[in-house]
Design a protein around this nucleic acid. Structure first.
Lengths: 287, 287
DNA sequence: GGGGCCCATGGACATCCCCTACGTGCGCGG
DNA sequence: CCGCGCACGTAGGGGATGTCCATGGGCCCC
């Protein structure tokens, strides 16, 4: 039976032999004596079970089998080159992984654009981006030991923060909802269904925190919340960016509450002490 | 400076270590003593320039760098597995390459379907399909030492042939062409422009071979020839499959020639003495 | 506290890999 | 036609390399 081990050295020898055409030139390209290449090719053929060079003529050429093996060998060597490139970048200081968790309430385009840019530059860093909502952001940030976080809820752990553009939000209801027209006080609001995302956090300091509505519905994300508002199920805070169209077409209306019908979420970009190069690039691109 | 060599053995050790979790189990999976794995990982770290396992705890785990390297290592090992698979198939008798040249006049679907099927089965054979026309088919067949050929012109070299369904063709002209209406003899045809593909071959035994028209135009393929006919430039033979729609809509008409206005091209599948498995599969699928 | 794992080190040793030296076959030019 | 250059190939030796055995020590769990 054949030996089944294949060595990268053997594949490199095959590649050099195919590229240069002769054993001697291949050996020169690899920086070794030509007998070394002879040995490598011979042991490669031993492992493969068939010849890769045609020795029938007085000058050797690659056999058809050899050319087929060469094609696969180049794949392996290309993968090895990728590994080397990644290793080189890692040695230059790039962090191997970068986990980002962000609040789905913020516009996603700047973040994705920056991530795409990094990926296009073949940075070795594996970037893992995850969307959560409100308090869920910090939960997964600490649970998965993430590096960056874009959160609206101020986190409990100590982190350095970079403020991002504020997100105006409005307290809205469907136009057919009783609260959609006229002016209402807190007592009036309390009689209707308040929609929140994942149990809105007191740290948000929303004006509605004191309402303690008769009934509250906790939804998973703002998309579901918007759908619920559009269905007339209840009322609640929604970011203006999400309902600009709905407001313009009159499908939903701001509630004229005696306290406030507008609020500004202030998302912040949080990171730990000393971000790596990829994290710095991402921070610079977002902030 | 670090050594820059990386060995497949080292990558295999890293992969086994990541998969099993401990040096001892990795060694067992690789069928060697655990010190061998220790050695491989140590020399790998030496080559990389950074640690791949985190030895700070009392149980070792992969470091973040190690996980990143592992991802690239798996790519290399996957490429190696591909190579092994190809080698295994080649040893089982599959030919490394299969060159097919066919006449563009024949319908291409059955051939492409068979090629796609082979490719889907991850056959190691590199399949190279090339379209030519008439005599050009045999030219490239002998020049590129191809294995299979679907030709309409009978080849000069001795090959075993498999007949394929005949391709009816018609002698046609545009409806506004003088030959499109009425009955014409050979002398009448000779006064008009005969369109041919790549200097039609006498071996085709077309009835028009004796015409020796006043002027003949040699085109590169039947697509161009159909376009020339539709433009009213001349008349000539076109396969019915190509002009079925044109005939139905009356854009082109069969020429009522006193000799014949229809012809049957008989394509044949030619191959050399002993086709390999991939060639046999292709022959069976087409014929 | 002891048994069971596991990592780690050191030394021995067989194998492997590469080199030097030399031989052979072929084409080419004087 | 015969040497010369080039390229492939073999033989043998020696140093590097990879693997194993034996041993030690740390930590968890019972």
């Amino acid at each position: 039976m054949h030996r089944v081990d294949i060595t990268l050295d053997q594949l490199r020898a095959l590649e050099a032999l195919a590229r240069t055409g002769t054993f001697a030139a291949a050996a020169a390209a690899l920086g070794r004596g030509h007998t070394s290449v002879l040995y490598l090719i011979r042991t490669l053929e031993d492992a493969l079970g068939f010849a890769v060079v045609d020795r029938s003529g007085y000058r050797t050429t690659l056999s058809a089998h050899g050319r087929r093996v060469l094609a696969s060998a180049r794949e392996v060597l290309a993968a090895e080159a990728e590994l080397h490139a990644a290793v080189h970048e890692l040695r230059a200081g790039w962090e191997p992984t970068l986990r980002v968790v962000f609040d789905g309430i913020v516009p996603i385009e700047p973040l994705l654009r920056a991530v795409g840019q990094l990926a296009r530059e073949r940075v070795p860093t594996q970037i893992d981006v995850r969307a959560e909502f409100l308090a869920g952001v910090e939960d997964t940030f600490v649970r998965s030991a993430a590096d960056l976080m874009i959160a609206v809820v101020p986190p409990a752990v100590a982190l350095t923060a970079v403020p991002l553009p504020a997100l105006p939000a409005s307290l809205v209801a469907h136009r057919d909802h009783p609260l959609a027209h006229g002016r209402h006080d807190t007592k009036a609001l309390r009689r209707h269904l308040l929609l929140t995302v994942r149990g809105s956090d007191p740290r948000l300091e929303l004006p509605t925190a004191a309402i303690e509505a008769h009934a509250t519905v906790h939804l998973n994300d703002f998309g579901a919340k918007r759908a619920a508002v559009l269905a007339g199920i209840g009322y609640g805070w929604l970011p203006d960016a999400l309902i600009a169209d709905d407001l313009a077409r009159g499908r939903v209306r701001r509630i004229a509450w005696t306290r406030a019908s507008r609020h500004r979420f202030v998302p912040r970009l949080y990171h730990r002490g000393h971000p790596g190069p990829a994290a710095r690039r991402l921070i610079a691109a977002i902030a």
